[in-house]
Design a protein around this nucleic acid. Structure first.
Lengths: 136, 136
DNA sequence: CAATTTGTACATTGTATGTATACAAATAAC
DNA sequence: GTTATTTGTATACATACAATGTACAAATTG
């Protein structure tokens, strides 16, 4: 077990086994956040599928599927015996309707948490926080 | 076919059959948005499961499952022969960690659309738009 | 070249999704 | 008040998806 990458993935990678979102997609979503936000930089090495699987309590093939998905998005280079290496990745061409679809997803996410009782105040607080983080 | 409710549900209820999100959950998410935002108000009647199923091109049982889910969240009253009626609904007690989980979901959504090429500018624009809408 | 460490391929199993069909309840028609 | 019709419900089924088990193949190390 190599401490080098553990320290990088551990903090954010929490799997919710009771969620309806499949585990491999939770892994993808978490790692993609770190990749987009720069917490994982080109050249960094991710844990091996077996290591991360053990850590998360899932089968290594489940992790492998997540890694493959990220590789297909251009984020990772997968090689035997070397693990997964983060790549330099150019932003793809923006799809038409992307903004409209984002708006809809955002609305639905907000509706969901409002329905769960989260206050409008807390929601705007988080929205503003993320807006600020983006403009840095 | 009653024109009364069709005009209310049509505009926003678009199903993407190619999406990985199951149809019944797309229906739930769309309707929940309308409920939270007040586009559907207490006393309003939704289309029958067969009507909406026909309109969306899915089996009526799929719509029924969506309605049942919303009913279990306290939004709808389902009665035979009357269709689904929107209820008055008190906001439930906020769960601990709700804000943290919202923050994570929001980050992941943003990371996803950034990875798809949506510009930071467009994202902040949408975030600010939703923030403004909430404070009204 | 042998041993080990890694990702891959494929078969198997359980769960989720969507549909078909029969049913039950409520209302309307007569 | 009985019958027909319109609705949601229940159950069974087919298919697709998710997660795992196991065997394998490639790359590195000694």
């Amino acid at each position: 077990m190599n401490a080098e990458h553990k320290s990088e993935t551990d903090p954010t990678l929490k799997i919710d086994h009771s969620s309806t979102v499949p585990v491999y997609r939770q892994v993808v979503d978490n790692l993609r956040s770190m990749l987009v936000e720069g917490a994982l930089k080109p050249g960094d090495t991710l844990p091996t599928v077996r290591e991360l699987g053990l850590e998360l309590g899932v089968h290594f093939n489940t992790v492998a599927e997540a890694y493959r998905l990220l590789a297909s998005e251009g984020w990772l280079d997968l090689r035997r015996r070397r693990g997964a290496v983060v790549l330099e990745r150019a932003a793809p061409r923006q799809q038409p309707e992307a903004e409209a679809r984002f708006n809809r997803s955002l609305r639905q996410l907000i509706a969901q948490v409002r329905a769960e009782g989260l206050s409008v105040r807390a929601i705007t607080h988080e929205l503003e926080r993320l807006t600020r983080e983006l403009s840095i």
